[in-house]
């Protein structure tokens, strides 16, 4: 999995591409810890390149949303691919997480 970091209007955007599986999840969790430790309270995952997400990957997404919310921040998920939207739907993540069509909407 490739992880890129950028900023859109003061919001940290983590761009993900590839497979978010049990091997990639620890790397994303480490990146999340860096973002949280850096004091950022707005985070958007740009999921346009996510080909696959396993249970381990979904746990990191939930952890991110929980951590940001706990500190009074927000965490959004943008541009979900069809496979990711499917697992978000089955897991009920579409109902409880902030999901947007575009990064710009998620960062607004």
């Amino acid at each position: 999995m490739q992880i890129s970091e950028s900023e859109v209007g003061g919001v940290t955007v983590l761009g993900l591409s590839g497979r978010l599986d049990g091997l990639a999840a620890p790397e994303l969790e480490k990146k999340l810890a860096e973002v949280v430790a850096g004091g950022k309270d707005r985070l958007v995952f740009d999921c346009a390149g996510v080909e696959y997400a396993s249970s381990a990957g979904l746990r990191v997404f939930l952890l991110a949303a929980k951590q940001l919310k706990t500190r009074g921040g927000r965490c959004g998920f943008a541009a979900l691919t069809a496979p990711l939207r499917e697992v978000f739907s089955v897991s009920g993540f579409l109902d409880i997480l902030e999901v947007h069509d575009t990064v710009a909407q998620a960062a607004a």
Binding site: P26, Y52, S54, S55, A56
Partner: peptide, 17 residues
């Protein structure tokens, strides 16, 4: 085992990491 990073799952399979 999953939270210990030993296995991972999806709708179709359980794999050992």
């Amino acid at each position: 085992l999953a939270v210990a990073g030993k296995i991972d799952t999806d709708e179709k399979k359980l794999v050992v990491l």
